[in-house]
Amino acid sequence: MNSFIAFIMGPMVWISFIIFLGGLTIKLVGILKAVRQKEPYIYSYVTLKHSLRSIGAWMIPFFPRSARMSPVYYGISYLFHVLLFLVPLFLASHIVLINEAFQISWPALNDQVADWLTLGVIAALIFFAVRRVMVPEVKFLTGAMDYVLILLVMLPFLTGFLAYHQWIAYRWITVIHILSGELVLIIIPFSRFSHMLTAPLTRAYMGSEFGHVRQAKDW
């Protein structure tokens, strides 16, 4: 058991990050090469200025009209995405592990704050799931995979929350926590989670078509 834990806390972390970052890099290079080969016109229309203008406009909370028309979903979704990165990266116990391995560290979130924020992430995911059942137009689009993706993201946060409180089966919960975190990293490049890479690209292209060619706003 100890050697298994050593594996998932050691080499497996490396493997996960290599697949996560390597997978996204290969995907990006693949997209850029395919654009060059099959749709080179895209390079004629994409401009850095209009790409950043569009991405920037969509990063400002409640700036796009679309965001103002669905404020609850947008607000929750926006916070969720921020916390998704913020909580794991600034969690004291994660920073301790990184410090042990690389002798680097950075300021951590207060444990109690992190605990509440973790609950926030879980609540947001429950909201997304409920929305998929309750809102007819979202329900119409939803397939089994959408719930699987929600569960996959929820698992590391839920087990992290349980592990912190050490209510039940601490050791097992921690193992599931580590494994599920690694699983999410590994599947990012191969699932719709890769929108973390492709969404800025589609936004940049649309932003450029609107800004550069159409001389209109796209938010």
């Binding site: 654009v35 749709e39 809102v135 979202v138 719709r192 589609t202």
Partner: peptide, 30 residues
């Protein structure tokens, strides 16, 4: 088609926000 089409298919998260944009959707009682 090319990477643009592929990206559109792979990137859609089925969030349903596009519904609010469409006059057909709005005219047909959502």
């Amino acid at each position: 088609t090319g990477p643009r089409f592929k990206a559109y298919v792979e990137t859609c998260m089925r969030c349903g926000l596009c519904a609010e944009a469409c006059s057909y959707f709005l005219s047909n009682d959502r």
